[in-house]
Every structure is written in C-alpha cells, then in structure tokens.
C-alpha cells in the first residue's frame, strides 16, 4: 500500500513539474523563488489593512465579455400596419431603403493589454465549478494557461502603497456606482407591487467612465420578448438608465475593479 501511494505521489509531482515547465518555462526559476515570498506578503498585509490589493494581479480577460457591439444596426424593417381604424386591409407603407446613418460614436476598443511582466500567480482560490477533466491534454493545458497569462494586463495607475482583501474599497465602489445609477433609473412603482421585475444589466466601461460597448441585459431575450409588458419596460428602463448615467464618476485608480459592472436593478424591492 505504501508503495502504491509512493507511485501515486511520484506521478503527481512529476506531472506538476512537466506542466510547470511547459507553462512557465522562460521564467520557471524566478517564479519558484517568488512563490516562496508571496504567501507571506498576502497574509501580513491583509490582516492589517483591508483596502484593495496593491498592484492587481495580472488580469486574464474574462471569458464572458459582452459580445462585440454590432457595428451599425440596420434600420428596423417596416413593421407597419398593426392597427387600423377602418376594417380594411391596408398594405404596408412603401419603405424606401433607409440610409443608415452611422452614429459617430464608435465603440472604443478595450485598452490593449500590456505585456505581461510577471508570471501568473497561482493563487489557490477554491473555485469548485471547474469540471474535472477526465483526460489530460497537456497541449491544451499549456495553451490555456499561456493565453490567460497573455491577456493579463498591468494597471500602471494603481496605487501600490498597500495591499489587502479589498472588500472595503469594493463596497465603496458599489455604493458610488449604485448612487449614480439610482438617479437615472425610473422606478417601476407604476407596476403592480407584487410583480418580480428584477433585471441585471452588464456594462463595460472605459477608464473615463464612458460606456465601452452597448450594455446588455442578462437573459435579454426573455425580458425584451416577455409577454409581461411591465418586465419588458423594466428591462428597457434599466438599459436606458445605465446609458444615460454615463460618464460614471468612479476613481480611476480602481479602474480594474469597475471596468465591468453587473447592475442588479430591482426597484420593486424598495417599495
């Protein structure tokens, strides 16, 4: 039994060495050295400050970014005669081909990620939702990790004077964003009180607080095609609110934290 466990441990360790070599080959030795230091740093500072982490860890690009904005929407096709006063059938109004007038507000591309100066820190956060692969493809694994590393960026404007869990600043940012959006959201108080009209809007922001790409509703199709007109209106009001609220006044040094917002709007809860 002891022999079997030894074999098992040996396999695991060897595999770890192989993966590490593939992924971090250029900086393998340096990373090993830093791995010794970093846990000490985190523990010490987090216990005493509780402000946001110093330099943010290199940020892999999130996987669930909103889809690329449509370049220019085609004008809606003529929907025409839906209601008639007279009981006669009126053909659709002839629709000359509308000339799309592209708005001179091209969506600003995301800032180019800066080259990765540091290796990805393998912080062992317990995220259990990753499915356990049944078969290992080291090539895929290497590519995945490399891509994640390449997408990381360094926020050079960050304040590096302190580090910590960051919950206090996060709460402050949430409150700042909420108070701004609240001023733009039309309450759904005109809908029946017991109706669930909660919607979630995903917003990507530029560093200057402007909208980076058209915001979108989570579960957009269900909401905007709902047979409940109050829900559809609630979704449209939410989209309008987050757009009209821009530019957002949020601290630029914390841009990485508010670069993407997920706004849960439920004005029925406050009734």
């Amino acid at each position: 039994m002891r022999q079997i466990l030894g074999i098992l441990l040996s396999i695991v360790l060897h595999a770890g060495v192989v993966v590490s070599a593939l992924v971090y080959f250029p900086a393998a030795s340096r990373m090993a050295a830093e791995n010794v230091i970093i846990p000490i740093e985190l523990v010490t500072i987090a216990e005493t400050t509780n402000v946001r982490a110093a330099r943010p860890e290199p940020q892999p690009e999130p996987e669930d970014l909103p889809p690329e904005p449509e370049p220019v929407r085609e004008p809606e096709p003529e929907p025409e005669p839906v209601v008639e006063l007279d009981p006669e059938i009126i053909p659709p109004a002839p629709e000359p081909d509308p000339e799309p007038e592209p708005e001179p507000e091209p969506v600003q591309p995301e800032p180019e990620p800066e080259p990765e100066p540091e290796p990805v820190q393998p912080e062992p956060e317990p995220e259990p939702q990753r499915p356990q692969p049944q078969r290992l493809d080291l090539g895929d694994l290497s590519r995945a990790v490399s891509q994640a590393r390449d997408r990381g960026e360094v926020d050079e404007g960050e304040d590096r004077s302190s580090a910590g869990a960051g919950t206090a600043m996060t709460a402050t940012l949430q409150a700042m964003a909420a108070s701004q959006i609240q001023r733009c959201v039309r309450s759904n108080a005109d809908a029946p009180a017991n109706m669930d009209l909660a919607v979630v809007v995903q917003v990507s922001l530029e560093r200057n607080g402007e909208i980076a790409s058209p915001p979108r509703l989570v579960d957009e199709r269900r909401i905007l095609n709902s047979t409940n007109p109050f829900l559809r209106v609630a979704g449209e009001r939410a989209l309008r609110a987050v757009i009209e609220c821009a530019p957002y006044q949020l601290p630029p040094q914390n841009y990485q934290e508010w670069r993407r917002l997920e706004v849960n709007i439920d004005t029925q809860r406050g009734r």
Partner: peptide
C-alpha cells in the same frame, strides 16, 4: 491537479463589480 493549475491561471480574472439598485426616481 490539472484543475488546480487551471483555476490558478484564471484566479485573477477580475469579477464584474456587482451593484444593487433598489430605488429609482419617479
């Protein structure tokens, strides 16, 4: 083990800032 490696690689993905808005104007 592989999962740990992958999670470690993506652990630093900055989650969106979640904002709750429960009031609006009239």
């Amino acid at each position: 083990f592989v999962a740990v490696v992958l999670i470690g690689a993506s652990a630093n993905a900055q989650a969106p800032l979640r904002v709750d808005v429960t009031e609006g104007h009239l």
